[in-house]
């Protein structure tokens, strides 16, 4: 394990259920700060459920229940005293399918800062430009900021969603299979972007693309049927996995 980096999330014995069905069992791991942590595993293994536990976005799902501790900077985010809105403000999220608001590019970025009090006019213009630049989208859209975001390509939409998440200046960026709907070129651009962003953000990315995990992440966790099978430095996971099931999965021997 990388010991040089402080911890962003400490997860201890996390269990969760959708109604009667258990989705996660006994997950314990530490997510380092300013690193990219990849969560890999086959479909339905609980990796999306896991990442969605980190900013309480699962609160919205009827019948969802969670047990155990998710400590973010030593505070339990599932503590009733914690405000889910504040948590989501500090822990941004990008979803599997690009989900821009059906509004202009500008308004998409401006919505988050608007919620948190950025004034209209020059301050907002500056925030929008800054966010789009950080998401490496500015040059492509600077002349059409007031056109609909839905007119952008899939890859641009996803970078817009990343820019939108960055606009509220979160500490953490959670990405739930952000490239699954994108072509390889758009995927490469997003990966480049993530490597750039990890200087300032803690990043957790769920992916079912193992090459992607190997390319971008520092730390990798392998999930299988709601359990964390192995967690460690990406290099070690991919070259010298300790668990047989991890090896089977990454070498493609899985059924």
């Amino acid at each position: 394990m990388d010991t040089t980096s402080p911890t962003a999330f400490q997860i201890r014995d996390l269990n969760s259920w959708y109604g009667e069905r258990q989705a996660l069992s006994k997950i314990s791991l530490s997510i380092p700060e300013h690193r990219i942590t990849a969560i890999i595993g086959p479909s339905g293994c609980g990796k999306s459920t896991f990442i969605r536990c980190l900013n309480r976005i699962n609160d919205l799902i009827p019948g969802f229940r969670v047990e155990g501790r998710v400590l973010f900077k030593d505070q339990d985010i599932n503590d009733p005293a914690m405000d889910p809105i504040e948590i989501r403000y500090r822990i941004g999220m990008v979803f599997q399918k690009p989900n821009p608001f059906p509004k202009s590019i500008y308004d998409n970025i401006a919505y988050g800062p608007f919620l948190w009090g950025t004034k209209k006019g020059p301050p907002m213009d500056a925030t929008v430009e800054e966010s789009l630049k950080r998401a490496a989208l500015w040059d492509e859209v600077k002349d059409k900021l007031h056109q609909s975001a839905l007119a952008l390509s899939g890859g641009q939409q996803q970078r817009l969603c990343i820019a939108r998440a960055l606009a509220v200046e979160p500490d953490v960026l959670l990405l739930d299979e952000p490239c699954s709907a994108l072509d390889p070129i758009a995927t490469a651009r997003i990966e480049e972007l993530l490597l750039e962003l990890k200087k300032s953000y803690t990043i957790v990315i769920v992916t079912h693309n193992m090459q992607q995990a190997a390319r971008v992440s520092d730390v990798t966790g392998f999930f299988l049927m709601g359990e964390l099978i192995e967690f460690g430095e990406t290099k070690q996971i991919f070259t010298n996995p300790k668990d047989r099931r991890t090896e089977d999965y990454i070498t493609g021997r899985f059924g």
């Binding site: 919205l60 941004g92 979803f95 919505y111 988050g112 939108r164």
Partner: peptide
């Protein structure tokens, strides 16, 4: 689509802001 609600809530919007905006 619920993806719109998630997009708004993930930015720290309250439920009312999500519904209204």
């Amino acid at each position: 689509p619920s993806s719109i609600r998630e997009a708004s809530l993930a930015l720290g919007a309250s439920q009312w802001q999500t519904v209204w905006n």
